Simulated scan of single mutants.
Amino acid sequence: MAWLVLVVSGLLETVWAIALEKSDGFSRWLPTTIFGVALVLSMAGLGYALRTIPVGTGYAVWVGIGAVGTAIVGMTVLGESASLPRVLCLMLVICGVAGLKFFH
């Protein structure tokens, strides 16, 4: 259950990161609200997961999911560069996160 919560929390990190960008410096109420709610839920989930998952593993997986998710949204929705080197580097992060889960 902790791993599922950790994955959902990592996905929520992507949500709050994108909402933060869309909030325009906290001047738009809807993205700002989404940012706040997603941030609290993401941190609460991380805290729950760290009750049974070691902090180094849990935090690295959480950050990895959030970073890769945010980069994918940036490339597919926000028009950021999707160059081959960027995609290869994201694949390395994914391999690292999978390795942390596999060797836990």
Rank of each mutant, 00 (worst) to 15 (best):
P54G: 15
G99R: 02
I65R: 09
C89Q: 08
L84K: 11
G74F: 12
G64I: 00
M43T: 12
L90Q: 05
K101G: 11
G96C: 03
L90K: 03
F102W: 14
V93M: 02
I53N: 12
A82K: 09
L100C: 01
L84Q: 08
L78F: 09
T32P: 07
I34A: 14
L6E: 09
P85G: 15
L12S: 01
S81K: 15
F26H: 14
A44H: 11
V68G: 01
I18P: 11
R51F: 06
V73I: 04
R28N: 05
A82Y: 06
V15I: 08
V87I: 12
L78T: 07
L41W: 10
G36D: 10
I65D: 08
E21T: 04
I34Q: 12
V5N: 01
E13N: 07
R51L: 09
V15D: 06
V15H: 07
V15Y: 03
Y59K: 04
L46G: 01
L6N: 06
L50W: 04
V77E: 12
A67H: 04
V7W: 00
S9M: 03
I18S: 13
G58A: 03
P31C: 10
M43Q: 15
V40Y: 01
E21I: 03
G74Y: 13
D24G: 07
W29K: 06
G56D: 08
M75T: 03
V87D: 09
S81D: 13
W16K: 08
G69E: 03
R28P: 02
L92Q: 01
P31R: 04
V77L: 10
L6G: 00
W3A: 08
E80N: 10
V5W: 06
A2F: 08
S42H: 11
G56W: 15
K22Y: 13
A49Y: 11
L92P: 02
S23I: 15
G56E: 09
S83W: 02
M91T: 14
A98L: 11
V40L: 01
G74E: 09
H104D: 06
G79H: 12
T76W: 02
T33V: 14
G66N: 09
A60P: 05
F26A: 12
T70Q: 00
A82Q: 11
L20V: 02
F102C: 05
P31N: 03
T32Q: 11
V5K: 06
S42A: 07
W3D: 02
L90A: 08
G64L: 00
G74H: 13
L12F: 08
L11N: 04
L50T: 00
V97R: 13
A44N: 12
I72K: 10
V15C: 06
T52R: 15
C95T: 09
V15T: 09
I94A: 10
W62A: 03
M91D: 11
G56F: 14
T32F: 07
A82R: 12
I65C: 03
Y59F: 05
L92V: 08
S27C: 02
A17E: 14
G69M: 03
S9N: 01
E13K: 01
S83V: 06
P31V: 07
I53M: 14
I94D: 14
D24I: 14
S9D: 00
V55Y: 00
G79L: 04
A17N: 15
L4V: 05
T14K: 14
S23F: 11
V93Q: 08
L4T: 04
R86I: 13
M91E: 10
W29I: 09
